[in-house]
């Protein structure tokens, strides 16, 4: 047990105590944001408050959040190594997985659709649905199934960009009558949010799948890793 670890432990305890104190000492807020959310719900175009906050009241946050996801993919693309992908290298040689996939895939798609649809009145929404979609992609990949459209770079990139582009486009289009950025007109709010959610689901799913696929291949042996690295300039 080095001095470093002891001091680290002591400091973390101190930080935790300070935080706990802060939590205990907290005065209750005077501002009542939930009430405001509830009051504005009828104008939001959806029935579930979390979705309303995410995609209407604070939709700008969500826009930037999608940008963060896209960023991760860009960096992954930039750091992809020169060697060609070997799809079979990632697949686990497991016939059972392939067999189960045939059953699971439709189910996963249905669940994703349901989550997306549910978002408007109960917990759920684009990110949750997108994650489930991505899970399907990962499973496919693990099972060694290759699909042509997943390997098509142009199509893939278009899919990645679709969500953010739609979001931005809607945000800018609604400005034409003179409203601020991302102000949905009341009568179209529900539709617009649904369109955004749909495209976001697709893009988020694709983003997560490509993040999984783009990660540099794994080598167990450091020496081997170094060797491989040496080969690729």
């Amino acid at each position: 047990m080095s001095l470093r670890l002891v001091s680290a432990a002591l400091l973390c305890v101190a930080v935790t105590v300070a935080l706990a104190w802060a939590v205990l000492d907290r005065p209750l807020p005077e501002e009542n944001l939930p009430d405001r959310v509830a009051a504005a719900m009828p104008e939001s175009g959806v029935d579930h408050p979390v979705t309303a906050v995410l995609l209407n009241f604070r939709s700008y946050d969500t826009l930037l959040e999608i940008a963060v996801l896209l960023l991760a993919v860009v960096v992954a693309l930039a750091l992809r190594e020169a060697q060609p992908d070997q799809p079979e290298a990632m697949g686990l040689d497991n016939p059972l997985l392939r067999a189960v996939m045939a059953w699971l895939l439709p189910l996963i798609l249905i669940v994703a659709g349901f989550l997306l649809w549910a978002g408007s009145y109960q917990p759920g929404g684009a990110f949750q649905a997108g994650s489930v979609l991505a899970a399907a992609g990962v499973l496919l990949r693990l099972a060694g199934v290759t699909t042509a459209w997943l390997d098509n770079a142009t199509l893939m990139r278009a899919g990645l960009a679709l969500g953010l582009l739609t979001f931005l486009g809607v945000g800018l289009l609604v400005m034409i009558p003179g409203a601020p950025f991302l102000t949905y007109p009341l009568e179209y709010a529900g539709t617009l949010i649904l369109v955004i959610e749909l495209t976001l689901t697709l893009s988020i799913g694709l983003t997560l799948i490509s993040l999984f696929r783009l990660t540099p291949p794994y080598a167990d042996d450091p020496d081997e890793a170094r060797e491989q690295a040496g080969k690729t300039p």
């Binding site: 944001l33 939930p34 959310v37 979390v50 906050v53 995410l54 604070r58 946050d61 969500t62 959040e65």
Partner: peptide, 10 residues
């Protein structure tokens, strides 16, 4: 309060 929930999702 739905706002923190949305924040957490983000």
């Amino acid at each position: 309060d739905p706002v923190p929930h949305a924040m957490v999702i983000t």
